[in-house]
């Protein structure tokens, strides 16, 4: 790895100040993406600003029917959280199926969504549940947060502090995992929410998206049978060595039916 400077701020203010003063800085969460990417020399920041010592970024709390998770909370803590398991079991289950135990002890919610990998799992949960992403200066609705492949609405130097998830009436997430990494070849999160049925798809396209036709079909009849006549177009879906666009389109149907069966 190239040399870099390392900083360990203890407040959000210090982290933001450091970011503005450094030449080409990057925030460091668990490092599960950042460190491999630096080793491959796809990123060569001058400074790493470790967010691990900032108390506001940690913790899980349930207040009314809103589950709030700090950006630096690791996947394993979400998977084991009694609050997450009681309020949104599908979310705790999703976190427990990310990668492997060692990735889950280091990888964080904030790092996952800031990175917005097209095959990441959390993105689907945020969009389907209608979560909101809190930064020091504003609150961003999940649908506006994920703007494209590896792109988000975050401004340069803007930190994710926490994510607030409204608890749904029912929800389930099912993915077809890549057998090597467990990233989603296709993952579908279905949620029965106050605003109706929401279905978010990850892994299939360049960025997480809502499946409008499927939502409409499920609105009146929340059952796997309701999806019989609905076909998913492969247009715009990813084709790579793992799966063709046509295969991914088919998997969206299969994963959705499984998720609906699990949620209903």
């Amino acid at each position: 790895m190239y040399e870099f400077r390392y900083h360990r701020p203890e407040t959000l203010e210090d982290a933001a100040k450091l970011f503005s003063e450094c030449g080409d800085p990057l925030f460091l969460a668990g490092g599960q993406t950042t460190l491999p990417v630096m080793k491959q020399r796809l990123a060569s920041p001058s400074d790493l600003i470790d967010l691990g010592r900032i108390p506001e970024l940690r913790g899980i709390s349930l207040s009314g029917d809103t589950l709030t998770i700090g950006a630096m909370t690791c996947h394993e803590d979400v998977a084991r959280s009694a609050d997450a398991k009681s309020a949104i079991p599908a979310l705790a289950g999703l976190a427990g199926d990310i990668g492997d135990p060692a990735v889950r002890s280091r990888g964080t919610l904030g790092g996952s969504i800031a990175n917005n990998d097209p095959a990441a799992d959390y993105t689907a949960a945020l969009v389907a549940l209608g979560a909101s992403v809190h930064t020091p200066s504003r609150v961003i609705a999940a649908e506006d947060f994920f703007t494209g492949m590896f792109e988000t609405a975050l401004e340069e130097g803007e930190m994710i502090v926490k994510v607030a998830f409204p608890a749904p009436r029912s929800a389930a997430y099912v993915k077809f995992p890549n057998p090597a990494s467990r990233y989603a070849t296709v993952g579908v999160f279905v949620a029965g929410t106050r605003e109706g049925v929401r279905v978010a798809v990850t892994g299939a396209g360049p960025c997480v998206f809502r499946a409008g036709d499927i939502e409409a079909a499920l609105e009146g009849d929340f059952s796997a049978d309701a999806l019989r006549g609905v076909s998913v177009s492969p247009d715009g879906l990813n084709s790579d060595l793992h799966a063709s666009a046509e295969y991914r389109a088919n998997l969206i149907g299969v994963m959705t039916r499984r998720a609906v069966a699990r949620a209903s």
């Binding site: 390392y6 360990r8 460091l28 490092g31 599960q32 460190l35 491999p36 080793k39 491959q40 790493l48 470790d50 691990g52 394993e76 492997d100 135990p101 060692a102 990735v103 002890s105 280091r106 090597a180 990494s181």
Partner: peptide
């Protein structure tokens, strides 16, 4: 592997399994 894929480098940090090739020594402070 040095690329977070193989798990040969796993150690326990505060009891949790961690890939030591994907953690800075400074993060173990």
């Amino acid at each position: 592997c040095d690329t977070s894929q193989c798990g040969a480098c796993v150690v326990l940090v505060d009891g949790d399994p961690v890939k030591s090739c994907a953690m800075l020594a400074a993060q173990a402070d």
